[in-house]
């Protein structure tokens, strides 16, 4: 693709992303979403972000692997434990990297 057609593609993707982010901010006061929608909303980031994350942890080069050949799975578990106990962003990311580097060094 040429540079200009790439930039047009970015613009289309950016406008769509902006429209999604602006949607309910723009509608506020004019439209109230139904109750079931409000009840479902809190599950959206949990389901979407976990769907993005899980394959990154459970697969190595496209193959399912929860063994010791997959340090990312164990480092991810460590980060999940740290996040659950301390609920601290910085600590979670730092300990996940530390665990990954430690496991890569040991294994």
């Amino acid at each position: 693709m040429s540079q200009s057609s790439l930039l047009l593609l970015w613009l289309a993707c950016g406008l769509l992303t902006f429209a999604i982010r602006y949607s309910f901010i723009a509608l506020e006061g004019h439209y109230r979403p139904p109750d079931w929608f409000i009840r479902w909303l809190p599950f959206v980031p949990i389901a979407a972000l976990t769907a993005i994350t899980a394959p990154e942890l459970a697969l190595v080069a496209g193959q399912f692997d929860l063994g010791f050949g997959n340090p990312r799975f164990w480092a991810g578990l460590a980060a999940i434990a740290v996040a659950a106990i301390w609920k601290n962003t910085l600590l979670t990311i730092a300990s996940g990297f530390a665990a990954l580097w430690l496991l890569n060094w040991i294994l």
């Binding site: 809190p42 972000l49 991810g76 980060a79 996040a83 979670t92 990311i93 990954l100």
Partner: peptide, 21 residues
Amino acid sequence: ADLGLDFALPLTFIAIVVPLI
């Protein structure tokens, strides 16, 4: 490449999602 910097995305999402549960 062996720093595994692309691990940052799953880690960031773990840091966001786990406290929500």
